[in-house]
């Protein structure tokens, strides 16, 4: 597995100093470049910790984290992130919210002022791609929850990150909107080929989107199972009703049940 793009090796992480909460232990995971990886597990198993470790927002107590061939010792500077809560800035229009990463990440940061028009065009194209054509000038609080989540995806992708981190981004949405956004992220990934780590507790979501699904144990979290999803791409929503799909979901459910120690 030397070709891994994101690699956590026997990682241990503790919150709150000595005697604190052991969040993950002996966590080993490797995600290839361009791969869509999903991490599922019981609640409180350290999935979000995994995301923070992989982006350099937290550093492990033991073990190593390598992203893009470099050992992570500070925030990785190239990750796009989206959470369950869209966290748009209410004083900025949707378009300005989407443009925010460009004000921080080089080389865009120094170019933004000069090539504003080109960047705005790009942002608008991205908004159109997720079904938000014409909503750029609106304020986030004028949009519905699902629309805000779409905009939040645009913000995570505008600077063309090599790594996209999704922390239960569809958790707070209704089932129809959620499935719609699955397709949005599926198409974006197919078009741009970035690496995705999706943290979720929805097994169907994980199987529908991912190339590989990792199951985490209850806290302290570690990977207890890894399952390749070899359903052919592009996948249609109908695939979720196929027996192969059901079989994989069923298998993963078994792992999760074991992980929660419920028999």
């Amino acid at each position: 597995m030397s070709d891994a793009f994101v690699r956590l090796d026997h990682v241990q992480h503790v919150y709150g100093g000595e005697g604190g909460v052991l969040a993950v232990e002996d966590l080993t995971i490797a995600v290839k470049e361009g791969e869509f990886a999903a991490v599922v597990g019981p609640s409180g198993c350290g999935k979000s910790t995994l995301m923070k470790l992989a982006t350099g927002l937290q550093f492990p107590r033991a073990g190593s984290v390598v992203v893009g061939g470099e050992k992570v010792s500070k925030p990785v500077k190239m990750a796009g992130m989206a959470f369950q809560n869209p966290v748009m800035l209410p004083w900025r229009t949707t378009l300005d919210n989407v443009l925010l990463p460009l004000e921080i990440v080089e080389p865009h940061r120094s170019r933004l002022r000069k090539e504003k028009a080109a960047y705005v065009e790009k942002a608008e194209a991205l908004l159109a791609q997720v079904g938000l054509k014409g909503f750029g000038p609106r304020y986030p609080w004028q949009l519905s929850g699902g629309m805000q989540q779409r905009a939040s995806l645009c913000r995570a992708l505008i600077h063309e990150p090599r790594l996209l981190m999704l922390d239960e981004p569809f958790g707070a949405l209704d089932a129809f909107t959620r499935e719609e956004l699955w397709c949005v992220i599926r198409d974006l990934h197919a078009a741009k080929k970035f690496t995705v780590i999706l943290v979720t507790h929805d097994l169907r979501e994980a199987v529908f989107l991912a190339d590989r699904v990792f199951c985490m144990s209850a806290r302290p979290g570690r990977i207890v199972a890894e399952r390749e999803v070899n359903l052919p791409r592009p996948r249609d929503l109908d695939v979720t009703f196929s027996p192969e799909f059901a079989e994989i979901v069923h298998e993963l459910r078994g792992h999760i049940r074991e992980a929660r120690n419920v028999h």
Binding site: K52, T55, G56, L57, P75, V76, K77, M78, A79, G80, M81, F83, N85, V87, L89, L100, P101, E103, I104, V105, R155, A156, H159, M165
Partner: peptide, 23 residues
């Protein structure tokens, strides 16, 4: 400030000054 907002910006490599002025 919401910790998620801070995380989004930090993962982009934002400095403390950036976070202060932008958020």
């Amino acid at each position: 400030i919401e910790p998620e907002t801070e995380d989004v910006l930090k993962a982009l490599g934002a400095s403390k000054y950036d976070i202060m002025t932008k958020v």
